[in-house]
Design a binder for these strands. Structure first.
Lengths: 221, 221, 221, 221
DNA sequence: GGATAATCGAGACGGTACGTCGCGTCTTCAT
DNA sequence: ATGAAGACGCGACGTACCGTCTCGATTATCC
């Protein structure tokens, strides 16, 4: 198998490869074309031939940098789906910020493109370096922001201090992607707010029935 | 490849087939072949040509019954992924039953086949009748069982009575599929139990009952 | 390797193949297109893609019947380079007929198409069934006609009866193809007639009949 | 198009070009590699990339000296197919020498390499300077030797003095290349000797039937 | 001796054609 | 008149070379 040397190796180890360097412009044209095709026709419209034709590039040029269309798509989307970085306006509380972020996540990933991205991550057949990077970039970026918020909330006393943050993060983000992928119910702000509310309050009955809940939970895990 | 005429020889009891009553047999062979291929090579290995060859069936015979490979796969899986019918042993409480069911779901869908099924649902590009039926069959069957348990739990006083059941169901099931598809963290019983525990107690800091909640949660996380 | 079953097997052994028979029309369109391309642009213009496009046919359809472009070309030319069957007007003698035939051969193979055909035969890398058939068809058809004429001439007493006919045939036909392929000198009727004359008389100095021979040869050379 | 300046211009007019001179070693490595590839895999194995890789040379280095693979091949072969210069042992007669030379020609060109060379000449699509030079070098060198022998033979009285030498040369050499390229019959010493014998004696009947032959030949040419 | 220039190797570039695979439709024959 | 077999037009796949173009490094001549 040909190497398909990664576009970017470790930064310092590079002893300047011998031949003509790869054209950054071609690379960019390919990613642009891939992005456009993905937006227009979905995953099935994204073919190497189509990308090459649209980018004005030869097929081998694409294969030189990526092993298959999937990888091109991921690379293209990593540049087009930047995390929105800063919360535009400071929220009243960490949980309020989280609620706002969850709305934003739901909105971004509800677009056809966002849905395709999610699918692409999900259907990655093998764990390549690129697919991990892509997942980290797309999914974990938000998740990390969420983790930061959760930690702040715990410090603030908004949340109890003995929760499993990873589980909590899954509780918060999973429903969005679940509805997105399964499509069994709408994915709107009402839903994400409902998620936040329920996950904060918990489902267990309070006051009088706290004991029952405790009993249930205290069973051997 | 040889025709593999009789996919299954009935024990010589039938001197009947003068005409062409082979249809049902052919269909079954197709579904069996599809199932096998899906298990062996994943979604990408499932081609109409492959199914036809393996089932000893002509391609048009397949197209006569299903519009495309996706549909065949779904049909094949609907027969191979039955809901596990009854909870084997009655649980101590509704939530205990739910916890057991969630473990079972996680286990079933963690198999390569289960993962492929989930992907197939997720990546259904258009909402066909069949894809809805499939989703209902695979996903909603469990969800309905869960809904029944939640309602029982509310009646029992295990859960508070003012919760949004649909949101609650998503809170419970989503994390399983989220980890399954994103693969960012393991999907085991410890996780599903953690999900149940956190979703019951909620994340918010308690005022009155903080002590009780903390006690529960402080068990091995 | 796929069989690429010969277009025509032995005639009687065929138990009528199972599926849809190959389209004769497609086959004809392919050969027509190949012929046209060969005529227009020579051997290098004859690509499978070009043929397919021009014939309105899929590439696999071509590969189903022929293993490579070379074979298609040969098949195409076998239908377009028929031997001219009968000598239009009966010649005064067998050698006169041979002289006329040699002129015709030189003329036919001097065309770009004829030259390509000859090259194609010459450059056949491996001895396939088709290439032998093609050579027989194109080259040996004329050669056989020539053999018949030589035999007649021997019977007539025009030629001596102790000559090696195969060598004689080579002596007659080879110069035409030699000039055709090497291009070191023109290939016209004067040349072919000169060949016939010299090959009849021989190069050796005569003892008894030197005079007669000289007389003959001294006609315009 | 770049000039592809001839490897060797006029000898004296050179004002010694400015830059680094072309590497003679590289040139030799290229020719050696081309020769080896041609011998191993035939014409189709001779690619610029293959030559460059094998010679340890950059592709542009090759293109700087030759316009295409064909030219490289010809250049490579011109150095590897030298005429055998002198007849090793003086022959009894000019025709005996010719017979020996024809044997040698048949033997040399029967090798795979010789066959490829011949094909290369035959299939030269355009009449470039190089292709003419190559043809002269490979084909005409022997032919010139043959012409010298024929002239000697005429002077000796071995051959009649009124023959067309060019036609005679074709009669002698053509059959070798004809059998070589068409492959319809073996190419051995028996054959070449037969050619010489027949071409000397002629095909026409002698003595009594000389008149018939003459009659035939004297028809309007 | 330092600038200039053409070479060298390496290899990426936009292309063209390759030969293969699978699609979904069709046609033919045997049952 | 149904079903297997399989050819059809089509389109994308991933590869091999084409001939051209940068690159950094080298090697010569000229100023």
């Amino acid at each position: 198998m040909r190497p398909t040397r990664a576009v970017k190796d470790s930064p310092s180890s590079a002893p300047r490869p011998r031949g003509r360097p790869r054209s950054l412009e071609a690379r960019r044209a390919v990613l642009r074309a891939a992005h456009a095709l993905l937006k227009e026709g979905g995953v099935s419209a994204l073919t190497i031939e189509g990308i090459a034709a649209r980018a004005g590039v030869g097929k081998p040029t694409i294969y030189r940098s990526w092993p298959n269309a999937h990888a091109v798509a991921m690379a293209a989307l990593m540049e087009g789906l930047e995390a929105p970085a800063a919360p535009q306006r400071p929220a009243a509380s960490a949980m309020a910020a989280l609620r706002a972020q969850l709305r934003e996540v739901a909105q971004v990933f509800s677009t056809p493109l966002g849905r395709n991205v999610t699918l692409m991550i999900a259907s990655a057949e093998s764990e390549t370096e690129l697919s991990k990077a892509f997942r980290n970039h797309v999914i974990l970026a938000r998740r990390n922001e969420g983790r930061r918020l959760l930690e702040t909330a715990i410090e603030n006393g908004e949340l109890r201090d003995n929760l499993d943050i990873e589980v909590a993060l899954d509780l918060i983000y999973a429903p969005v992607f679940y509805r997105l992928l399964m499509g069994h119910a709408p994915l709107d702000a009402a839903f994400t707010d409902g998620v936040i509310r329920h996950v904060l309050e918990g489902l267990a009955a309070r006051r009088a029935q706290a004991r029952g809940a405790r009993t249930v939970s205290s069973r051997k895990t």
